[in-house]
Nucleic acid binder design. Structure first.
Lengths: 216, 216
DNA sequence: GCGAGAATAAAACGAACGTTTAATTAATTC
DNA sequence: GAATTAATTAAACGTTCGTTTTATTCTCGC
């Protein structure tokens, strides 16, 4: 009735995070009890409070790290100095790859915002805005350069993000479509949506310009 | 202390539904207590059970009526026998109008599915599928007729629905954009997304075909 | 104006909730 | 190998939850 053999704080905390993401994604934050979470980890409920002071602290930690991970993934994937179409393609590919890989934590970060205190909600939304601004900048650059045809940059950015993030609602690995097929189709839809004019760098854009604008 | 002067079953039930949609949309189903709901209506918690046998029955009723309302709205707005582009435009306009007008119940119907029992979840999903099949049929007809250019009908339908429904996340009446401006932009994005070739019926499609494909 | 049914209030039920306290054992340090 | 610290259990606390029971008052048809 106390410390158990082989117990390890780091391992337990990791197990708690993992189980929490999974349980909150499935049941919802309010519906998941701390006892349920503890049972999933194989521990008593009180042990959870060794790692997270409150249930809301746990939720906030999961969300913050999800958003920070998303921003870091984009920082790593971002092309150095490229034309808007290439940057947009990289953004779409990174967004879809990240969200499919982290379906559960995406679910948590998108659905449980209302369970955060005002301060913490603000912090998460600030991270989200940081990430979304990157897309708006790409769209604006492309529109100014004349390679995109966009009515409203902000509205288009929101539409694209909703469309791309929506993948996690229906996509299941190993079903009809592979990740790369889904990504390719979404990339194609994105390029049409923004009215991308040319394919991008390498292709000879002389012949292609004549017929159709919605390449790739 | 029992029946109060002026009490009326129909009025109370309507007030309960209205307050429930609003509270669940704001707090979430699990986070809303029956006492909170009762207080919002101006009644004791026990009185709610005169109208809905359980909390889940209340949620299910709200969701079912939302989905039925969506299907009925489309049945009323559906153009008789028109070309795919006209039908798609009608679908988009109806979808956005309905979802903006019923933001709260849309939120409830999309976010609280996991609080339903298996049977009831199935019923709601069946209604949703019924509605989404309409869009898939339009896309398929357009693709077969050669007026749309679509890689994957099912995937495109999901992308469009996610994109359109996402309006309720950020749209607030009376802000920067009016409903009709938002609808027009989404219509334009939709037509580009599906690669719509011509404007639709009335226009002379001889001259327009040359230059750009993404009209409207 | 009386009887029946509709609409509610008041109070209580047991269960579950997040969290705290105190005690106990395993691992680590010196 | 003793002292210290880390990790955990067991038990309890007060609160809140969905729901039920019982009783009471209003409304309406006759």
């Amino acid at each position: 009735m106390a410390r158990t053999t082989g117990s390890d704080g780091e391992k337990t905390e990791a197990a708690v995070r993992e189980a929490a993401v999974s349980l909150i994604a499935r049941l919802g934050y309010e519906a998941m009890s701390m006892r349920q979470l503890a049972a999933e980890v194989g521990v008593q409920a009180a042990a959870l409070y060794h790692y997270f002071p409150t249930k809301e602290d746990l939720l906030f930690t999961l969300m913050r790290e999800h958003m920070e991970g998303l921003i870091e993934a984009w920082d790593a994937a971002r092309p150095a100095a490229a034309d808007p179409a290439t940057r947009l393609a990289a953004y779409v590919e990174n967004h879809i790859a990240f969200h499919i890989e982290r379906r559960h934590s995406t679910h948590v970060s998108n659905m449980e915002l209302r369970s955060l205190s005002h301060n913490r909600l603000t912090q998460i939304l600030k991270l989200r805005t940081t990430y979304e601004k990157e897309l708006r900048a790409i769209l604006r650059d492309g529109a100014e350069a004349g390679v995109f045809d966009i009515e409203d940059t902000g509205l288009t950015a929101m539409a694209l993000i909703q469309m791309m993030t929506g993948v996690i609602v229906w996509f299941r690995p190993g079903e009809r479509l592979s990740i790369s097929e889904v990504t390719a189709t979404y990339l194609s839809m994105t390029m049409r949506l923004v009215g991308a004019k040319a394919r991008s760098a390498t292709t000879t854009d002389s012949a292609e310009r004549t017929n159709d604008a919605v390449a790739l």
